[in-house]
């Protein structure tokens, strides 16, 4: 990720009344990268997103999109951004197509062909001429994605995009987003409560709690190779493993070691040679959910699932 960041959030703060809702948040988003934005309810995800797209005015700090400040040059910066903030609300008394036409007029140079193309991409061509009032939530989400993609943005911000989509729709949506990120080099910023969804979709995850960014992780790091070895006696096993250069972490009835699969047989040989009895050796994967709960102190996530 050595590339120049498309989006730079610099020391963003928001105070409403006396309460500081967002505290000095800084984050860079890169071309072709999908970043997940996670946090419990009330952590400030939506407020952050609203400030990024100019719906709210930051108390301090700035958001830069492709070299232009959203606060100083709204029109110049926002034309590169496609947005869905929470549920995409459309004009219900107009057809999906008319809605797209209406929004397209507020951008420069969107042809009718481009509208048709986007409609096809989101799979709405059969019902695009029906009134939005007759659409299901999933179809409104698709239409919302279509309006965000109309002007071929360099940066896409999606707040809860899979809300209301069925499993097939979610999968299709994920594949589509990954495709435009890879092929068109679009930077994508997705907030969601669906942890497993974020894990599948994103390259990187930013975690926010109480208005502060507490961690940024690459999904690959989360999936680094770890093994769990259940052995007895524990002390001896620990000594052997540390002795051969694996920082062993005590876990349950054994140890967790960070290592590739190729080193495991050798380590087992050594352990057996030292007289350690081995009961189990298995690859160990911590889920995003357990990490998330660990980082945010848990508890609150129970509510976010039901939202």
């Amino acid at each position: 990720m050595a590339e120049q960041a498309i989006v730079q959030i610099k020391n963003l703060s928001k105070t409403i009344g006396k309460k500081k809702i967002i505290k000095n948040l800084s984050l860079d988003l890169h071309k072709g990268e999908i970043t997940g934005f996670l946090g419990p309810n009330g952590a400030g995800k939506t407020t952050t997103i609203r400030m990024m797209v100019g719906l709210m005015r930051p108390t301090e700090g700035e958001v830069w999109i492709d070299g232009q400040s959203v606060q100083a040059d709204f029109e110049g910066s926002i034309q590169k951004v496609g947005v869905i903030v929470e549920n995409p609300e459309m004009y219900k008394y107009m057809s999906g197509y008319k809605n797209l036409l209406h929004f397209s007029r507020m951008h420069k140079g969107i042809s009718k062909e481009r509208i048709d193309e986007v409609v096809k991409q989101v799979g709405m061509q059969n019902r695009i001429n029906e009134k939005v009032a007759s659409y299901s939530l999933g179809m409104r989400q698709r239409l919302g994605l279509a309006q965000a993609l109309l002007h071929d943005p360099k940066f896409l911000i999606l707040d809860e995009p899979t809300n209301g989509l069925d499993p097939a729709g979610i999968r299709e949506f994920r594949i589509y987003l990954q495709k435009i990120a890879k092929e068109n080099g679009v930077a994508i910023f997705v907030s969601s409560h669906l942890l497993s969804e974020i894990e599948l979709l994103c390259d990187r995850i930013a975690i926010i709690q109480n208005g502060e960014l507490i961690d940024i992780k690459n999904v690959n790091d989360l999936q680094k190779s770890r093994y769990y070895i259940q052995a007895e006696p524990l002390e001896l096993a620990g000594e052997v493993l540390t002795g051969i250069g694996f920082p062993a972490v005590l876990h349950d009835k054994g140890y967790l070691i960070d290592s590739g699969a190729e080193h495991i047989p050798g380590a087992i040989n050594l352990l057996v040679g030292a007289g350690v009895r081995i009961f189990a050796v298995q690859p160990y994967r911590e889920t995003l959910e357990s990490q998330f709960l660990e980082m945010t102190g848990g508890g609150e996530i129970a509510q976010t699932h039901t939202k």
């Binding site: 719906l55 034309q79 947005v83 929470e86 609300e89 459309m90 004009y91 219900k92 309006q147």
Partner: peptide, 14 residues
């Protein structure tokens, strides 16, 4: 009241 204001104000129009 329709919530469309956020769609309208995230266009490149002041």
């Amino acid at each position: 009241s329709q919530g469309t204001i956020k769609m309208l104000l995230t266009r490149p129009v002041k």
